[in-house]
Nucleic acid binder design. Structure first.
Lengths: 158, 158
DNA sequence: GCCTTTGTTGAGACATGGTGTCATTAAGAA
DNA sequence: TTCTTAATGACACCATGTCTCAACAAAGGC
């Protein structure tokens, strides 16, 4: 990830903390630095390991306490793929993507938005007597067409 | 749930076990009886409690070992709502619903279908260069409107 | 810089959902 | 009925995640 993007994310996080009257601690700085030194999705435990590589003083509790701040500030996306742990994704766009397509073949994860789907979801929720608060759409897909063209394999997809 | 349905499910499960050369044990009989004595979704721990009400000899291990058999035999559907535990739904085999709405307030789960959403999903998948194989849509919702009308509370929702 | 206030932290106990081990039990076959 | 061995119960164990609390340190005032 580019340094510029990293610095920008850091600035946004500090801004978020200031707005909430939360303190800008070394640990929080280390964690956001760690998050934005990768493009990949990660788990809480991975983030803990990476952060502790940078600074042994970062504790598990702090990582688990900081992750909700990162998701609340929209700098990180929380994703659930039915595993007993969650995945997180550094998110530099402002779009509130909660829809993911996971390729069965190359494991690539694509985020996407759809106003149409969102609208239908709200309609259905309302019809059933509920107010939709959040949604999670997961598509399992195959890139075999791309693969046959030599355009998609483990290397190019990740 | 009607007795007929329950008996039918039991028969199917026994058939499944026989095909796999698995033994038809008392515990497995108790567990499938328990599962199909309700229409409700349940968690593994709930199933354990219910089964133990019928027969104290059923152990946690056996419940956790039997659930994969039930999902494999398509008699029960496993659902993940991002909580640290899974939900299971009896009598799944007859309905192809993969969309669920779960109420944050009363934990009610509603299954629904939407051809419209499915169509859009396929379009999006194609646009991104993939073939959509399966999909999983979960809506987190609130029944507070119903609640304020006195139409929905823990009792009526479950 | 030095205090003071108080949010934040690290360590580790704890909670919870689930798995593994192993001696014992019982299903199904002969 | 006896034999073989899959299945079981009890419980230790694991993993992810949360909670508590004494100690620390950020931010602001002096």
């Amino acid at each position: 990830m580019q340094k510029k993007v990293r610095e920008e994310a850091k600035r946004k996080f500090i801004e978020f903390l200031e707005k909430k009257d939360f303190r800008i601690t070394n640990q929080r700085r280390i964690i956001i630095d760690t998050v934005f030194s990768t493009d990949k999705h990660f788990t809480a435990e991975q983030l803990l390991d990476w952060a502790r590589e940078k600074d042994k003083s970062v504790s598990r509790a702090t990582v688990y306490r900081t992750l909700p701040l990162l998701t609340e500030s929209k700098l990180v996306h929380e994703m659930d793929f039915g595993k007993p742990y969650k995945f997180y994704d550094p998110n530099y766009s402002d779009s509130p993507n909660h829809n993911h397509l996971i390729c069965e073949d190359c494991e690539k994860i694509v985020e996407f938005d759809s106003d149409k789907i969102e609208k239908i979801e709200n309609e259905i929720g309302h019809k059933l007597g509920f107010t939709v608060k959040s949604q999670n759409l997961q598509l399992s897909a195959s890139c075999d067409v791309l693969k046959s063209k030599g355009a998609c394999d483990k290397k190019t997809c990740d």
